[in-house]
């Protein structure tokens, strides 16, 4: 294309300002966007501590926390408590996932199963698992099984709810397709039911992971003799805010890490989906 510009008409020939269309999606993802907020908090905390604006007795300075963490690691207390806590959380999470998925499959694939299971689970859902703690302590004592069962009870409900919902909302057109290509019941479950329910399951998993850490915090501050929560409880009695903060940072880091892990699984497993986020 050639453009001949006549002297006085120049302005008129100029390209009209490109019509900027408003994007409805959130736009391109920002690199390391998830780190911006936490870093900002850290900066404010550091400045506050350095200027004496934050009282050391109320909140220890970041560098104090770091050196305390160093000492805790050096004498091995941090590792052993972290190890105990992780074991509890993972065990409760693992068992809860299995229970939730199995119950969701039974109640999602058979009307009888749904009639029997769905009601009780909905009732359980209405009762916060932490409210069951007194009963669990009476039944199971204050040992490890009580802790794992409490975590399990907090985990299996979101897994069940979201997997079951995922199962039930599989498009009936795919069921029809499975019939016309003559899939067997097993193939139908493997090719249609499980992948169709996967997005629901993974959403449930995100809630479950968060729930597992939440339950962990509570059970570890009740009658525990090991674990991050115990370490923090002990620090409270001696007024050591730095140790409490080390514990908080640990809990936060574990929560964030596991959520990032689930999100990674989500992205891998659901790469077929085009969503607002991608």
């Amino acid at each position: 294309m050639t453009t001949t510009t006549l002297p006085g008409v120049r302005a008129a020939v100029r390209r009209t300002p490109a019509v900027r269309r408003r994007r409805l999606g959130p736009g391109k993802p920002i690199k390391f966007g998830a780190a911006i907020g936490p870093l900002l908090l850290l900066v404010i905390w550091s400045i506050g501590s350095a200027t004496g604006w934050i009282d050391q007795r109320v909140l220890s300075a970041p560098w104090t926390v770091v050196s305390t963490a160093g000492e805790l690691i050096a004498d091995g207390r941090l590792q052993s408590n972290l190890w105990t806590s992780s074991q509890r959380a993972l065990l409760g999470l693992g068992l809860g996932i299995v229970l939730g998925v199995v119950l969701a499959l039974i109640s999602g694939l058979s009307r009888l199963g749904e009639a029997v299971l769905d009601g009780p689970i909905q009732i359980k859902r209405a009762i916060p698992s932490l409210a069951l703690l007194p009963l669990l302590i009476l039944w199971l004592g204050i040992g490890e099984s009580m802790k794992v069962v409490t975590i399990l009870l907090g985990v299996f409900v979101p897994i069940y709810i979201h997997t079951h919902n995922g199962l039930r909302t599989i498009d009936s057109r795919y069921v029809e397709l499975a019939q016309t290509v003559g899939l067997s019941q097993r193939e139908f479950i493997r090719r249609v039911v499980l992948p169709g329910a996967l997005p629901g399951f993974l959403l449930g998993l995100r809630f479950a992971v968060t729930g597992a850490w939440l339950s962990l915090v509570v059970v570890e501050q009740i009658n525990a003799t090991s674990g991050i929560g115990y370490m923090m409880e002990l620090a409270r009695t001696y007024g050591q805010t730095d140790i409490i903060i080390v514990g908080l940072v640990l809990y936060g880091a574990l929560g964030l890490l596991s959520d990032a892990g689930v999100r990674l699984i989500q992205r891998r497993a659901l790469s077929w989906r085009r969503t607002l986020a991608s």
Binding site: R173, Y174, T180, R273
Partner: peptide, 24 residues
């Protein structure tokens, strides 16, 4: 042996094209 083609392609969105073709 009866095959059906629907108005919508009815491909399983979570299966790759080849897996859809040889489904079952």
């Amino acid at each position: 042996q009866v095959s059906v083609v629907f108005q919508d392609s009815r491909l399983l969105p979570w299966a790759r094209v080849l897996d859809n073709v040889v489904l079952g």
